[in-house]
C-alpha cells in the first residue's frame, strides 16, 4: 500500500510522537508513506473562520502537490484530515469553485485522489494481520477510544460512524486490549479554544476524563494532536484548578500499536507525555 503523507505543522513539535509512531507502525505494516513534497499549512480553524476562499486555497495547494505524486493522500492529524477532505469534497462538487481556487493557487488540482485519515488507512490495510503481528498483546489495558470531532464530522468526510465510531476500538481489541463502552467518544474537547478560553476547555476535558475513568478505563487512546494535548497536558491544570487527582495516560493509537508490535518505546515517543505511562505499560502481559 502506497500513500502520500501530509505531516501537518505539529509533526516536529506538540505531536512529535504521533508522527514518529505513525511512520514506524506504517513501515511495519507494509504501508509506504511518501511526504507530500513542499507541503504547507492546511489553514486549520483559523482559515475557515476567516475566509472560505483562503481555507480552500491553503488546502488545495497541498491536494495539488499530493496529486502530483499520483497517490491517495493520508493525514495523521484529525484537523489536517478534515480540512483536506472537506476541501476535496467542496471542490469536487463545484467546477467553478475549483477553477477559481486553482487560479488562486496557480496549481492544477483536479480532485482525482482520495483523502484518508491514517486511522482509516491502518484499519483498512492492517485488517486481519494484526492479531498475528502482536508480539506483545496489550493484555491488561482497558482503553477508552476517544475519536473527538474532526475525524468523524461532518458526515460528508466522516472517517467512521459519526455517532458510534469503532475503527480504533477494533484495532485495539485485535491487539489484545479491552475497550470500554462509554458515551464521550465523540464529545468535543474544545480544540484550540484551549489557548484563547482555557477555562471552557478545562470543563470539557474534565468531563471526558471523568467519564473514561467511570467506564473503567486505565488509559485513553486518541487519533488527534489537539485532543491529545488537551487530554494529556491539561490534566495537571484540571487537577490544580478543580482539585481532582487524575493520572490517566493518554496515547495516540499508533503508539499502542507500536507497543503491541514490539517497537522500542523511545522510538515511538511514549516517554514524551505529561502523564507518565511507564507503570501501566510495564503491567502489560
Amino acid at each position: 500500500m502506497n500513500y502520500s503523507y501530509f505531516p501537518g505543522c505539529c509533526h516536529h513539535t506538540s505531536a512529535r510522537e504521533y508522527d514518529l509512531s505513525t511512520r514506524l507502525v506504517c513501515k511495519n505494516l507494509g504501508i509506504n508513506l511518501t511526504d507530500v513534497p513542499d507541503w504547507s499549512c492546511c489553514g486549520s480553524t483559523a482559515a475557515h473562520s476567516t475566509s472560505r476562499l483562503l481555507a480552500l486555497a491553503l488546502s488545495a495547494r497541498n491536494l495539488a502537490l499530493a496529486e502530483e505524486t499520483g497517490l491517495d493522500v493520508t493525514a495523521a492529524c484529525a484537523a489536517c484530515y478534515q480540512r483536506l477532505a472537506l476541501a476535496r469534497h467542496e471542490l469536487s462538487g463545484d467546477g467553478d469553485l475549483m477553477k477559481k481556487v486553482n487560479k488562486i493557487t496557480g496549481k492544477k488540482y483536479r480532485g482525482d485522489i482520495k483523502v484518508k485519515s491514517i486511522l482509516d488507512v491502518v484499519h483498512e490495510s492492517a485488517g486481519d494481520q494484526l492479531e498475528t503481528m502482536a508480539v506483545k498483546p496489550l493484555k491488561g489495558l482497558k482503553v477508552a477510544c476517544y475519536y473527538g470531532c474532526l475525524l468523524v464530522r461532518p458526515g460528508e468526510i466522516s472517517a467512521d460512524d459519526p455517532e458510534n465510531p469503532r475503527k480504533m476500538d477494533i484495532i485495539m481489541e485485535k491487539l489484545g486490549a479491552r475497550t470500554v463502552e462509554w458515551g464521550y467518544k465523540t464529545e468535543c474537547c474544545g480544540a484550540s479554544l484551549a489557548v484563547s478560553n482555557e477555562d471552557i476547555v478545562i470543563q470539557l476535558v474534565e468531563k471526558i476524563i471523568r467519564n473514561a475513568v467511570l467506564a473503567g478505563a486505565n488509559s485513553i487512546v486518541t487519533a488527534c494532536p489537539l485532543c491529545h494535548f488537551n487530554l494529556d497536558v491539561r490534566q495537571f491544570k484540571i487537577n490544580r484548578n478543580l482539585g481532582t487527582g487524575y493520572r490517566l495516560p493518554v496515547f495516540y493509537f499508533t503508539q499502542l500499536m507500536g507497543v503491541a508490535l514490539g517497537l522500542n518505546f523511545a522510538d515511538i515517543g511514549v516517554y514524551s507525555h505529561f502523564v507518565n505511562p511507564t507503570k501501566l505499560l510495564r503491567s502489560i502481559g
Partner: peptide, 11 residues
C-alpha cells in the same frame, strides 16, 4: 466565536 466547529449539531 465560542462555537468550535465540532459539528455535533450538523450530524
Amino acid at each position: 466565536w465560542i462555537c468550535a466547529f465540532c459539528s455535533t449539531c450538523t450530524v
